[in-house]
Design a protein around this nucleic acid. Structure first.
Length: 422
RNA sequence: GCGAUCGUAGCUCAGUUGGUUAGAGCGCCGGUUUGUGGUACCGGAGGUCGGGGGUUCGAGACCCCUCGAUCGCCCCA
């Protein structure tokens, strides 16, 4: 190999080139999601990867970390500020309004693809990452939440992921959320000086977040902090009760997580995350980024984009994080390997392989490098049927070793026999 | 944005308290068996030891800077 002075460009930080077992696991997650989503009749949507910046800044909230410091924003040649999508929901909401999808309401949609967030990469966290996503738009009733969650639960179960549980909470309607928030500010404000630096800042920006602080200085105050339940309006309480009893009826296991709050401004009522159980293998595999699926109800979002009030619920799950939990996915075993032990038989293999592939067999042809070693190479592929094409005493022929059934064997034999000619 | 750890062949790693031409396994390429053969034997290609500066008679090893990776904080899927 000759050397050049040209340096190979490096991949962008936080992007990944997924290959091998990880790629198999990734594909398995997507395939499973696609299959389950059809069971629930969610319709597939394809969305742009970028939007006008305001789609996200208005929908997600100016003050959130996502908008204030994690977006990949740039100006296009026309001078518009555009942003690589940091999440699906805002774009889907925009599409719903832009395309008049109200006519389809209640609309169940599902999608998957890359998202972008400018963050420090670490385990289970990338700058370009991938999610599967499901939304029900235009459905105000708690049954929608239940169906959506049942689907999430089924996806996770069909992926074979164990020891992951649904953590469920309600944030109430706008009024109860505001009242609760005010109470938390008052409560934590009184102890301000004793809180961690981070939480003192959270007091201004996002007081709800103090509740799941990991800092021991905060934790001792959290237990006695005001509970959302005390502020829940009757409607909000009824709604939550309907969701929980619906989940029970559907056989979806859940646990109440009183301090579960979601970072984005648009959440109302139901909020949830699927999290590996403490100490489980799944928790170990994920490191500190343990939420694999999260979402909730976002009744106020459409209005922030200038649409009519439209209730909606949705969730998204990190494909990389799910893929870390599905274990090794071994690709199907190779059906046929053909070792071409004489270059004069290259045309023969060129005829044989396509015929077999059209017949539905997976086929690898080994026809490069030392002829003596081709058989060994083919053998290492561990095929069900191993054919060796060779010339003996001037006559072309072949031999084979097979673990396939007789029917398949005779089919393959016939094709080879007919085509091992010079 | 902050912190910790790490950076030697394509891959996984060895390289003694700094001391001559930097090693192994796997993989790759070629050869050996006049043969029906997966694991055996021989040989070969491939490294400016992430990059730059410094200390030293001498640096892959020590110091500084820089780039990158990994893990954690923040936040999130």
């Amino acid at each position: 190999m000759s050397k050049t002075s040209l340096k190979t460009p490096q991949a962008i930080r936080g992007t990944q080139d997924i290959f091998g077992p990880e790629a198999e696991a990734f594909a398995f997650v997507v395939e499973t999601f696609e299959r389950v989503r059809k069971l629930y009749r969610f319709r597939r949507v394809e969305m742009p990867v970028f939007e006008k910046t305001e789609v996200f800044s208005r929908a997600i909230g100016e003050t959130t970390d996502v908008v204030s410091k994690e977006m990949y924003s740039f100006e296009d040649r026309g001078g518009d500020s555009l942003t690589l999508r940091p999440e699906f929901t805002a774009g889907i909401a925009r599409a719903f309004l832009t395309n008049g999808w109200q006519q389809h309401a209640p609309l169940k949609v599902a999608t998957h693809g890359p998202l972008f967030r400018y963050e420090r990469p670490q385990k289970g966290r990338y700058r370009q990452f991938h999610q599967i996503d499901a939304e029900i738009i235009g459905a105000a009733e708690p049954q929608a939440d239940v169906e959506l969650l049942a689907m999430a639960d089924q996806v996770i179960r069909e992926l074979g992921i164990e020891n992951v549980t649904l953590h469920l909470n309600t944030l109430g309607d706008a009024d109860t959320r505001d009242a609760w928030r005010a109470a938390l500010i008052e409560y934590f404000g009184a102890a301000r000086g004793e809180l961690s630096e981070d939480s003192q800042e959270r007091l201004e920006k996002n007081p709800l977040r103090i509740l799941d602080s990991k800092d021991p200085r905060d934790r001792k105050f959290v237990a006695d902090a005001p509970k959302i339940d005390a502020f829940l309006s009757d409607d909000a309480q009824r709604f939550f009760d309907a969701v929980t009893s619906g989940l029970d009826a559907a056989g979806v296991k859940w646990t109440r997580a009183e301090s579960l709050v979601r970072g984005l401004d648009y959440y109302r009522h139901t909020a949830f995350e699927f999290i590996p159980d403490e100490g489980s293998a799944a928790a170990g595999a994920l490191g500190s980024q343990s939420t694999i699926l999260g979402g909730g109800r976002y009744d106020g979002l459409m209005e922030s984009l200038g649409g009519a009030p439209t209730p909606a619920v949705g969730w998204a799950a990190g494909i990389e994080r799910l893929a870390m939990l599905v274990g090794e996915r071994t690709p199907d075993r190779l059906d046929v390997a053909i070792a071409v032990e004489d270059d004069a038989l290259l045309p023969a293999s060129a005829r044989i392989a396509p015929i077999l592939r059209r017949a539905g067999f997976t086929v690898e042809v080994i026809a490069t490098g030392s002829t003596r070693k081709r058989y060994d190479k083919a053998s290492k592929l561990d095929p069900m049927y191993l054919a060796s094409l060779q010339i003996r005493d001037g006559t072309p022929g072949y031999s084979h070793k097979s673990q396939l059934d007789d029917e398949a064997n005779s089919k393959i034999d016939a094709v080879i026999l007919e085509n091992v000619q010079l």
